[in-house]
Amino acid sequence: MSGLRQEWEAEAPPRNCTLQDYQGVPARWCPGCGDHAVLNAVQQVARDKQLPPEKTVVVSGIGCSSRFPHYMKTYGFHGLHGRAFPVACGVRSRRPDLHMFVVTGDGDCCAIGTAHWIHTIRYNMDLTILLLDNNIYGLTKNQTSPTTRTGERSNTHPRGNVLPPLNPLSVTLGVTNASFVAQTIDWNPPHLYSTIRAAYEHKGTSFVRILQRCPHFTSHVFAAVQHDMSQVLLLTHDDGIPLEPSMQRLFPNRAAHDPHQLAAARAVAERDDVYPVGLLYRDERAARYDLQTSQGLGKSQAEKMAATEKWLSRYEI
């Protein structure tokens, strides 16, 4: 790729990155917080894919979950509440060489960042989005989030949430040009790992909603699901999230689901009797904005000056 200095173009000599090479400062989340599991999974994917740490960028917003980049030893961008997406798109627009993860929370993505969420899905740039959905605002201490279930109490709704929760999967699947939509749970590391890995490997925006336990504020919310796995529906398909048969057996509820069928994906997303986990939808042919935005990267300084001169000359008298 041009536009970058020569030194970079000569690839670094082969090296073997270990987990440690991806571990930043010790994570400060509460013990038992689901975020730890996601961090481990991302670090494992990075190691297994041997992503050079200097070429890996994790972008986040604000929230407990958005502290994520600090705990990675890669490049990171801990931004503003709700605004991780535009920053990530900007980074990606001129850097096809980087490996990018975006970490966001249910407030960050589904409340304050909603406009960007919708449009980022539509832009379909090569990004791996991880929505750490604990159904609550954690960092600001227990306020209702858009995904909080009806009746749940919080500091802002002490008598219980009156509204039905927003469904991040169906919203995402409703956006034109969505290209990868999956759901997983923080308490099944193999499925979590496999999902994030598949999301990373997908070229385009992959959106992964992760049901994330917040033992501090919403310990009860996913407790029932965690203990009764029949509330989870494992989606299986050859083009879906790969999972060892031994692991599959941990999910008593399994259903074949073809991720290329949008209508079927939407129907599964809408189910309120079970949490579907796995790949709901994938479309490798969705238009990618980053292929457009990175097109001119090869231009030399001389070519840029010539183009400027050409346009400037039009105004000559």
Binding site: W8, P53, E54, K55, Y75
Partner: peptide
């Protein structure tokens, strides 16, 4: 980003 050894979190 891309500069080895410079990894940091903004």
């Amino acid at each position: 980003p891309g500069q080895r050894g410079g990894e940091y979190v903004l």
